[in-house]
Amino acid sequence: MRSYGDPCGVACGLDVIGERWALLVVRDLLLGPKRFNDLLAGLRGISPNVLAQRLRELAEHGVLRRRDLPPPARVAVYELTDWGRELEPLLLHLGRWGSQVATPPEGALGVDSIMLSIKAAFDPARASSAPGRVYELRVDTDAYCVQTADGALRVSRDPAPTPPDATLTTDLDTLRALCDHRTTLAAAVDSGSVRLDGAERAQRDLADLLLAPFTPA
């Protein structure tokens, strides 16, 4: 691996995560472990060989690790270490900064990118009106737990650990259409492409959290 040969912390950090695709691998593991093929499917344009190399390098540096799941799963997953998870604030800030690019590349956001955008756009003031709320977003076959607590928003790629206050069920194409303002939440609910369950106030709060990063100022 190439090194800048500079003891500055910025240069040392780039020695670890500065290679092409490295930060995007970290991004796709922020919400929870993934299998190799799941990472490959989510990183458009990366080859299996390059992904394997990045995973190996990041593991050697202690940013992530490979873990074998017990039976009956019998598959290996990749997950961030505690040190690797410390990159989350940096990536969320980079996402907010990068969203201001005047002419972003064309393409569709992945579901993890949408979830991280929700987290990056979260206003801590929102949590004070609904402390301890637990929401669940079901997008196709994936489930995401969204929790508000202690002035922070936590998002993980898991079902809610307790019965959620509200649940939104949809497919990725509809979620993208909502984010791109090609449809409204009311229209999606009326058409049956979105289902909202739970108390009415919790449903409104969940919808507000979901659409906040994609609503023009």
Rank of each mutant, 00 (worst) to 15 (best):
residue 112 D to G: 10
residue 65 R to N: 03
residue 104 P to A: 03
residue 153 L to C: 05
residue 79 E to S: 08
residue 39 L to G: 00
residue 43 L to T: 12
residue 72 P to I: 11
residue 104 P to K: 03
residue 93 H to V: 11
residue 150 D to L: 08
residue 89 P to T: 14
residue 102 A to S: 04
residue 115 M to V: 05
residue 128 S to L: 15
residue 67 R to L: 06
residue 137 L to I: 15
residue 103 T to Y: 00
residue 42 G to Y: 08
residue 66 R to N: 10
residue 71 P to A: 11
residue 52 A to C: 01
residue 131 P to T: 11
residue 128 S to I: 15
residue 146 V to Y: 04
residue 61 H to R: 14
residue 75 V to N: 04
residue 141 T to P: 05
residue 64 L to T: 07
residue 52 A to F: 04
residue 43 L to V: 12
residue 55 L to Q: 00
residue 99 S to P: 01
residue 104 P to Y: 00
residue 138 R to W: 07
residue 148 T to E: 04
residue 133 R to V: 12
residue 117 S to E: 06
residue 100 Q to Y: 06
residue 51 L to K: 08
residue 80 L to I: 12
residue 141 T to W: 03
residue 69 L to E: 12
residue 61 H to Q: 13
residue 63 V to M: 05
residue 111 V to K: 01
residue 129 S to G: 13
residue 136 E to F: 08
residue 68 D to T: 09
residue 78 Y to W: 15
residue 67 R to N: 08
residue 81 T to L: 12
residue 84 G to A: 10
residue 98 G to N: 14
residue 113 S to A: 15
residue 84 G to I: 14
residue 118 I to F: 02
residue 64 L to A: 02
residue 105 P to S: 00
residue 69 L to S: 08
residue 48 P to H: 06
residue 137 L to R: 02
residue 149 A to E: 08
residue 66 R to C: 10
residue 132 G to W: 10
residue 41 A to S: 14
residue 89 P to K: 03
residue 146 V to P: 02
residue 55 L to W: 01
residue 51 L to A: 05
residue 137 L to V: 15
residue 78 Y to D: 05
residue 61 H to L: 14
residue 133 R to I: 13
residue 100 Q to T: 14
residue 66 R to M: 13
residue 151 G to A: 02
residue 153 L to T: 02
residue 48 P to D: 06
residue 119 K to R: 10
residue 73 A to P: 00
residue 62 G to F: 08
residue 96 R to T: 11
residue 43 L to W: 03
residue 104 P to R: 02
residue 98 G to E: 14
residue 63 V to W: 05
residue 41 A to F: 11
residue 44 R to H: 15
residue 135 Y to K: 01
residue 39 L to W: 01
residue 124 P to Q: 05
residue 80 L to M: 09
residue 99 S to Y: 00
residue 83 W to N: 07
residue 98 G to M: 12
residue 88 E to H: 06
residue 150 D to S: 10
residue 112 D to C: 06
residue 60 E to C: 13
residue 39 L to F: 09
residue 49 N to H: 12
residue 53 Q to F: 07
residue 112 D to K: 03
residue 76 A to Y: 13
residue 70 P to H: 06
residue 99 S to D: 15
residue 62 G to Q: 09
residue 87 L to H: 03
residue 50 V to R: 06
residue 46 I to V: 15
residue 45 G to C: 01
residue 53 Q to R: 15
residue 41 A to G: 13
residue 42 G to V: 12
residue 81 T to R: 06
residue 91 L to F: 02
residue 68 D to F: 08
residue 140 D to E: 11
residue 126 R to V: 13
residue 124 P to A: 05
residue 147 Q to A: 11
residue 55 L to K: 04
residue 81 T to P: 01
residue 69 L to A: 09
residue 141 T to M: 03
residue 129 S to H: 11
residue 90 L to V: 14
residue 130 A to D: 04
residue 79 E to W: 04
residue 51 L to R: 11
residue 97 W to C: 04
